[in-house]
């Protein structure tokens, strides 16, 4: 029952990726990227539960924290125009 849910969330990631390519302004693209990050963390957790691998969930925790840092840096970049 877990693998179909992961495949469904993968389809959601592809639909959000369309917004990243289309988005008229830079903040639009970042909103799509932020959504993709959260959904990818959930896919990793679900696959870890499905295959009973703890290492996938550990990678998911690290990915969540690092994607937060990435979001903060891109926000600082579009705020000032440079680092």
């Amino acid at each position: 029952m877990w693998v179909p849910a992961a495949i469904f969330l993968g389809v959601c990631v592809i639909v959000a990726l369309v917004r990243v390519f289309l988005g008229p302004t830079t903040p639009d693209r970042i909103v799509g990227l932020d959504t993709i990050n959260t959904i990818v963390v959930m896919i990793m957790v679900i696959l870890g539960i499905a295959f009973k691998e703890v290492i996938l969930i550990d990678v998911a925790i690290v990915y969540a924290l690092l994607s937060f840092v990435t979001t903060l840096f891109i926000a600082k970049y579009i705020e000032k125009g440079k680092f």
């Binding site: 302004t25 830079t26 903040p27 970042i30 909103v31 932020d34 959260t38 963390v41 957790v45 870890g48 539960i49 703890v54 969930i57 550990d58 998911a60 925790i61 969540a64 924290l65 994607s67 937060f68 979001t71 903060l72 926000a75 600082k76 579009i78 705020e79 125009g81």
Partner: peptide
């Protein structure tokens, strides 16, 4: 470990949204 991942999402997600909104308005 899944619960710890949920806590990480709950802390980082609204903070990131706030940063993006402020940066978007200033740009």
């Amino acid at each position: 470990h899944a619960f710890i991942a949920l806590i990480a999402i709950l802390v980082t997600n609204p903070t990131g949204a706030h940063a993006i909104a402020r940066a978007g308005h200033r740009s």
